[in-house]
């Protein structure tokens, strides 16, 4: 690991100011001289591996703004402070009651210890676990822009089939983000140009020809909160995660589903897919395919086909198309059958 200067800003504006001081114009947050740390479960790992090499590590855990650590339930929905830990949010009674899909997505992620450490904002910003990205001896366009992609024709069983490019097929492995994108969450951020709101769907960027550009955030920008709008029918929602073993593994495929049903007919569906895409993935085509339809195995199957219409498989991950479809079908039917 490269040495770094450790600092503990105590308010958001100071944190932003320090980060700005070390940032250059073309800095991506993941390549900046100064980087933020909260739980450390992703960044500390990547610093040990030499993937992340900040000169300054800005510990956000001493920030004094109380809202950063709070979950606020309002008429308008629910607001998660950025420093709330995953475990706390997963166990929060109102989160479980109003948004089962959020609670599930948190509970099925990582391990008890990691959920106690990882902040919600850090979790949504977690970087891919692509084996070729993790180890610095491989070529990787995300880690070293322009160096090539060893995963493309390598062992790519884990890799994405949606949102891929010729430069990168690394999967976005997070779970929580799938629930957030399905529910139209909004991210609050503060940076050098003040505070702003980012629709969750705009937070992450598909790799295209710049896979090292992972988010819309500027190098000095800090996520302060994540807001989920009130969706009364989101009580009929769940997160289904399919993996090789029962727990403590990344999704091979997952689905976040929320349904507004009129009897068995779909008024509105919200669908996001995990484990199969390069970024949190809202399956808009599948949602449209279901609208106004009676939800059964056939219509669910048609929606799943629509969701994967643009999929691009590689040698070892072609099965994810079929698995992803089946995961969505199962998730839709299980959501339909929920006792709400």
């Amino acid at each position: 690991m490269r040495p770094f200067v450790y600092e503990q800003p105590t308010d958001i504006s100071t944190a932003v100011a320090i980060a700005s001081r070390f940032a250059t114009d073309d800095d991506q947050p993941t390549r900046a001289n100064a980087q933020f740390i909260a739980g450390g479960t992703n960044l500390a790992d990547y610093m040990k591996l030499g993937v992340a090499e900040p000169n300054h590590l800005l510990d956000l855990n001493q920030l004094k703004e109380a809202a950063l650590r709070q979950i606020q339930v309002t008429d308008g929905g629910i607001r998660f402070g950025a420093l709330v830990r995953m475990g706390e949010a997963a166990d929060h009674a109102e989160v479980n009651r109003r948004y089962p899909v959020i609670a599930d997505s948190l509970r099925l992620a990582a391990s008890g210890q990691i959920r106690n450490m990882a902040s919600l904002a850090g979790n949504v910003l977690q970087r891919t676990r692509c084996e070729y990205f993790r180890e610095t001896s491989w070529q990787c366009n995300k880690r070293v822009p322009g160096s090539g992609c060893a995963a493309m024709d390598g062992f790519n069983r884990q890799h994405a089939v949606l949102g891929v490019s010729d430069a990168c097929i690394a999967t976005y492995h997070g779970d929580f983000a799938q629930a957030l994108i399905a529910l139209d969450a909004v991210v609050h951020a503060e940076g050098g140009h003040g505070a702003r709101k980012i629709p969750f769907a705009k937070l992450h960027r598909q790799p295209r020809d710049t896979p090292h550009v992972e988010t819309d955030l500027a190098a000095e920008e800090i996520i302060t909160a994540i807001e989920v709008p009130a969706i009364p029918w989101a009580r009929r929602s769940l997160y289904l995660k399919i993996r090789d073993r029962e727990s403590y593994a990344f999704a091979l495929a997952s689905a976040a589903v929320a349904l507004d049903l009129d009897g068995e007919t779909v008024r509105e569906a919200r669908i996001a897919l995990g484990g199969v895409a390069t970024v949190p993935w809202r399956a808009g085509a599948a949602e449209e395919a279901l609208q106004g339809k009676k939800l059964d195995e056939a219509s669910a199957g048609a929606a799943a086909d629509a969701a994967f219409a643009g999929a691009h498989p590689r040698q070892h991950n072609a099965f994810k198309i079929e698995l992803g479809k089946r995961t969505l079908v199962r998730a839709l039917l299980e959501t339909r059958d929920m006792k709400v």
């Binding site: 740390i37 500390a44 510990d59 210890q113 990691i114 106690n116 450490m117």
Partner: peptide, 12 residues
């Protein structure tokens, strides 16, 4: 709270 001491810098 249970945490992983390997992923936490001591100074934090």
């Amino acid at each position: 709270k249970r945490v992983l001491s390997c992923l936490s810098f001591a100074v934090m």
